[in-house]
């Protein structure tokens, strides 16, 4: 991928990747480190980034996925820019939806109780809005596998959330 195309990819997707990390890391500031790591990998491996913009975006999420596994365990010197983003993420209160937060917490706990492979599909589909076929590309498996994981996850969640009136 050319440097210009890679810059365009980063411009269009970096914010979404930061949100991906924010929703998953224990400490909000760690999302800044994770994003920085993804960008370094993109530049280092830019000859391997697909030319197609959609494929490249999914490739970027794939890098984010592997980076997440090491979140909070990285060490080393941070750039001033990353420190600035960390400080912002730490200091800025997130927009908590007061009306639904209690319910949202219960739903997140139900999702957290799913097997990891199912949980990942549910989160990417409903939190990042990725279609199931795109999730298959990100996690490196077939669309049919992702569809069956999603169906199984929905069945379990419907059962877990029955007290909220979800039909089982």
């Amino acid at each position: 991928m050319t440097p210009d195309a890679l810059e365009s990819l980063i411009r269009n997707s970096a914010r979404d990747v930061l949100r991906y990390f924010e929703r998953r890391v224990a400490q909000p500031a760690d999302a800044a480190d994770c994003l920085s790591e993804v960008l370094l990998v993109l530049w280092r491996d830019r000859s391997r980034v697909p030319d197609d913009p959609l494929e490249a975006r999914l490739w970027m999420f794939g890098i984010a996925r592997t980076t997440l596994a090491a979140a909070g365990r990285r060490s080393g010197r941070r750039s001033a820019e990353v420190e600035r983003l960390r400080a912002l993420l730490e200091a800025t209160p997130t927009d908590l939806h007061a009306d639904s937060e209690g319910l949202a917490i219960d739903v997140r706990e139900a999702i957290a109780g799913l097997p990891e492979a199912q949980r990942e599909v549910v989160q990417m589909h409903h939190w990042e809005g990725l279609p199931l076929v795109d999730i298959a590309a990100v996690v490196g498996t077939s669309p049919s596998t992702v569809r069956s994981r999603y169906a199984a996850a929905r069945a379990s969640l419907a059962q877990a959330l029955a007290p909220y009136g979800v039909d089982v």
Partner: peptide, 22 residues
């Protein structure tokens, strides 16, 4: 329910600026 369960993120303009700087 699943759609609205997404944890909130820091959606302020300053974050966009900081991400661009990174």
């Amino acid at each position: 329910l699943l759609d609205v369960s997404a944890p909130a993120t820091t959606d302020v303009d300053e974050v966009d600026t900081a991400v661009s700087a990174v």
